[in-house]
């Protein structure tokens, strides 16, 4: 077994003991969001105007946006406090480093675990979407890797950031001024064309916008050729850059 997988195994075993706690975020949230906003609010929206949002029922529009938004949240979430725990609270990283494992094994093992969590959550979300009849196209299958890629694009840079922090205070700031605004204004709940011109440009440049557009296109059966490729490349580059940055910040933090 490769060394990084041995580090990964730690998270797997730890999760076996604590998975109940993550049930609400993974299973319940998609149901609640889709029911309250998608069905409840969507009903008003679809009846209030004569043109449906994006040419489809609001629930159809919203669901893939939420899929990408959830992937981002899980990717970022799992890359903040658990990283701090590895470094400061439980010091599991240091326990690993006293064994033949190296800094990159610790990093890749944890990253792989975070991607597993994103994949689990995305899979469940897609299943819930299917149950809500919001998946009109078989292209939706490809929305699964797209959602995982969205989560990955956030997790690696956030890991790099978390490894430089002394306290968890910065994570609150990251959420308040990063994750939450992105979640709200990247085309998740409404088309970015609703925003004033200059904000629209900014919104189109955000990473979550790429994930939302990619997932929405696939789920609705309009993958959209070059645009989709552009979104995917954007996210891939962000992920790769994050990994490189995390290699540096992990080494700086863990080799003293």
């Amino acid at each position: 077994m490769s060394p990084a997988l041995r580090a990964y195994q730690y998270n797997l075993l730890a999760y076996k003991r604590t998975w109940r706690g993550s049930l609400t975020t993974t299973f319940l949230y998609p149901v609640l969001y889709l029911a309250a906003i998608g069905v409840g609010l969507g009903h008003l929206i679809d009846h209030g105007s004569n043109k449906a949002v994006g040419g489809v029922p609001y629930l159809w529009f919203l669901a893939p946006g939420l899929l990408a938004g959830t992937a981002m949240q899980i990717g970022a979430n799992e890359s903040t406090f658990p990283v701090m725990a590895g470094i400061k609270w439980l010091k599991t990283y240091f326990a690993m480093l006293a064994t033949p494992l190296e800094v990159t094994d610790v990093l890749y093992g944890h990253l792989l675990w975070i991607l597993t969590r994103v994949a689990l959550a995305s899979g469940v979300f897609l299943a819930v979407m299917t149950a809500f009849h919001t998946v009109p196209s078989a292209w939706a299958v490809a929305a699964f890797p797209a959602a995982v890629l969205t989560g990955a694009a956030f997790s690696a840079p956030v890991m790099a950031f978390s490894a430089t922090r002394e306290t968890d205070q910065s994570f609150v700031v990251l959420y308040r001024f990063g994750i939450v605004p992105l979640f709200l204004f990247s085309g998740t709940f409404f088309p970015v064309t609703q925003l004033p011109g200059w904000l629209q440009v900014i919104a189109r440049c955000t990473p979550l916008y790429q994930g939302v557009s990619l997932c929405r296109g696939l789920v609705l059966g309009r993958p959209g050729g070059w645009d989709a490729l552009g979104h995917a490349v954007y996210l891939l580059v962000m992920f790769a850059g994050g990994v490189l940055a995390a290699r540096v910040s992990y080494r700086r933090r863990l080799v003293q």
Binding site: T92, A95, M96, A98, T99, P100
Partner: peptide, 30 residues
């Protein structure tokens, strides 16, 4: 792989059982 380290901080995983702590550590060694 040939030395055992007992650091000043225990670096145990408090959430896991005694047995799991030993088992996982052994897995790190492959």
């Amino acid at each position: 792989s040939r030395i055992g380290l007992v650091p000043q901080d225990d670096t145990l995983d408090l959430e896991l059982t005694v047995r799991d702590n030993l088992y996982l550590y052994g897995r790190y060694f492959g």
